[in-house]
């Protein structure tokens, strides 16, 4: 009788083990890592870059904290921080070396003479400027910030919800290496795309230009800070 119970116990143990393994397997299946060495390296690089960014951020915040801890200069530090943030958001006028792009009709004596720059071309131009390390951009007197919209409203191009002036239009660009950007813009694809619409771009490097600030209230809706995971 006792032997019989022992056999039953062994059998139920095996069954229990099998059920547990099956349960675990179906609940959390083994996901195989099929990345090859190149992908792994790439992922590693991305993670390292991220780590570096985070470290820099930590360092910056710690410096700010230290400044705030020195009580006598607390207001100054806070003002500095606010000014720094404002500058980064594009709420202050900035100046430095850069280039001026002048957009005007290519031929005025025959054919279709455009009055304004189409929105898609303007977007293309800005993307290309950003590719070539432009620091700050202003179209006419509208500063481009991270939430700026270039839209076509009733066949008139609007930037920051303001219509852009008629041609000739000037685009001001701030860059660390203005000469390099100037050369890159001369041979850029934008020139060709603009030419299709009978528009020409002339680039002029300049030692000192001032870009206007973004003058409208910065309203951010439907956006919330999230707590980053991991």
């Amino acid at each position: 009788m006792k032997d019989r119970m022992l056999i039953f116990a062994i059998v139920t143990t095996i069954i229990g083990f099998m059920i547990a393994v099956q349960f675990k397997t179906t609940n959390e299946p083994v996901v195989r890592d099929t990345r090859d060495i190149l992908q792994l390296r790439q992922d590693l690089r991305i993670e390292k870059e991220r780590q570096q960014e985070l470290n820099q951020e930590i360092e910056k915040q710690l410096t700010l904290l230290n400044q705030l801890k020195q009580r006598d200069n607390i207001e100054g530090a806070m003002l500095d921080a606010i000014n720094d943030l404002k500058e980064r958001a594009g709420l202050t006028a900035v100046s430095g070396e850069g280039i001026i792009l002048e957009i005007k009709p290519m031929y005025t004596d025959y054919g279709f003479i455009p009055q304004t720059v189409p929105a898609h071309l303007l977007r293309f131009l800005i993307n290309e400027l950003n590719i070539h390390n432009a620091q700050e951009i202003a179209i006419g007197n509208q500063r481009i910030i991270s939430t700026s919209a270039i839209r076509d409203v009733n066949n008139v191009t609007h930037v920051n919800a303001r219509r852009i002036p008629n041609l000739p239009l000037k685009v001001y660009v701030l860059a660390n290496e203005a000469e390099k950007l100037h050369h890159e813009m001369i041979v850029s694809e934008s020139v060709e795309y603009f030419a299709i619409e009978n528009l020409s771009i002339t680039s002029t490097p300049i030692n000192f230009i001032t870009l206007p600030e973004y003058e409208q209230p910065l309203r951010i809706r439907h956006l919330q800070p999230i707590k980053e995971e991991s």
């Binding site: 229990g16 083990f17 547990a20 397997t25 299946p29």
Partner: peptide
């Protein structure tokens, strides 16, 4: 005794990180 065995088996299965590839889970079932 069999019930104790069942519980021991279940605990053993859950505690050890023993898993089988998903394609074989049919056979196990």
């Amino acid at each position: 005794l069999p019930f104790v065995g069942l519980v021991i088996g279940l605990l053993l299965g859950f505690w050890t990180e023993f898993r089988i590839p998903e394609i074989y889970s049919n056979y196990l079932s």
